[in-house]
Amino acid sequence: MSNRAPVPVVTLSLIGLNLAAAVATTLDPTLADRYGFWAVRPDGFRAFTSLFLHANLLHLAGNLVFLAAVGPLVEFHARAWRLGTVYIASGLAGVGAHYVVARSLEFSPPLVGASGAIAGVVAYATLLYMGMKVPVAPKLGLKVSVLTLVWVAMQGVGALMANNAEAGSTAYWSHLAGFFVGLVLAFLFRAPKQASLRIGHEALDRMNQRSPAAVLATAEAILAKHPADPRALRDRAIAYGDLHEPDKEAAAIREWVERTQGEPQRESLAYIRDHRLWQALEPLDRARLAHAYQEDSLGEALLESLVKGPDNPQRADALLSLAECLSDRDPVRSHALLTELAEKYSGHGAFQLAQQRGHWPLPKSGAKS
């Protein structure tokens, strides 16, 4: 498994677009006037292009530093497409606020800059990390939520004190509108839940350095709020195993499998296979999962558990399925499985299906059903 850090593709792409626009503007200074947003003649296309243009190097650097700082936080914890959505929606909201404020002025320069868009990303990141402390001085740290409130207050005061559109200064109303839309999207995309899970997972990381009992208590607390969280389901099952409580371990494993899908469920089945804990799952559940993972090595492992384990109602079907799975790779084993199917289950529907499909051997005389 690779230990390389994930790459914030969307964040880097947005930074790249802003830098490319800055280079283009340096080569052709008229681009800001041509593709910035003019309140006196609003245009949807220029509302979009204005999100990547900047007035000067300081304006660009300030925005990109913030984007580089908070963009990956949102991208990794809220999915990449949500970062892009927040950036564009918040930026357009900022443009809309600028239009409302500036349309009645005698003169308003074109609006350029990603400040409204980045304000929305900051709002989203604030909900994800509102309890985290940021060092602001030696031995002094302030919570992210406090710093954000200070920033919002500064924008509000600036908006009330300065007719920024007329003066061509920082568009305070655009910042506030972008922040508000980012906040709304954060709630729509359930950022508080993501924050709760992140805090819970960080607690699990710490408890894993202590004891299985500590892990179990933390996992149970997370599952009380988030019953289908794969990480907590996994750590709870492992903790019961470490505490040598097989019945509770089996129940936790079943819940881990039942409550997850996709890769998390695959991880649960791999854990069962690696630790030979198939008895935690009922034969019928193993048969169902074997069908779901028939193109995967896990499907073969599930079938093996049914064939090699105690006799059960799914064993005949498992013999046929495993024989077909091994027909090309291990024909000798496949033949042996079909022979056992014929000898022990000649009256079973699985054997009749084997005959219809042209599998051999045929049932021997006196074979038991």
Rank of each mutant, 00 (worst) to 15 (best):
V10I: 15
L14I: 06
I15M: 14
G16Y: 10
G16M: 12
A21V: 02
L31W: 09
L31A: 06
R34I: 01
R34P: 02
R41W: 04
D43M: 04
G44C: 03
R46G: 03
L58G: 02
L60T: 05
A61V: 11
G62K: 01
F66A: 12
L67Y: 09
V74G: 00
R79I: 04
R79A: 13
Y99K: 03
V100K: 15
V100I: 15
S104Y: 08
P109Y: 07
P109L: 13
G120P: 03
A125K: 00
T126W: 00
L127G: 00
L128K: 00
V136T: 13
A137F: 12
V144A: 04
W151K: 06
A153H: 04
G168R: 03
S169F: 08
A171D: 15
Y172V: 02
H175D: 15
G182K: 00
V184C: 11
L188P: 07
R190A: 13
P192A: 02
K193M: 14
Q194P: 00
Q194R: 13
A195V: 01
I199R: 12
G200Y: 03
G200F: 03
D205P: 00
R206L: 14
M207D: 14
Q209P: 00
Q209F: 03
A217C: 07
T218L: 04
L223H: 05
P230E: 12
A232L: 10
R234N: 11
I238R: 08
A239L: 04
K248D: 11
E255T: 13
P264W: 04
Y271P: 04
D274A: 09
H291A: 15
Q294M: 13
S297D: 15
L302W: 02
L303H: 08
S305M: 07
L306G: 05
Q314K: 05
R315T: 13
L320Q: 03
P331W: 06
S334F: 11
H335S: 12
H335V: 04
L338E: 10
L341T: 11
K344R: 14
L353K: 14
Q356C: 10
R357N: 12
H359G: 01
L362F: 10
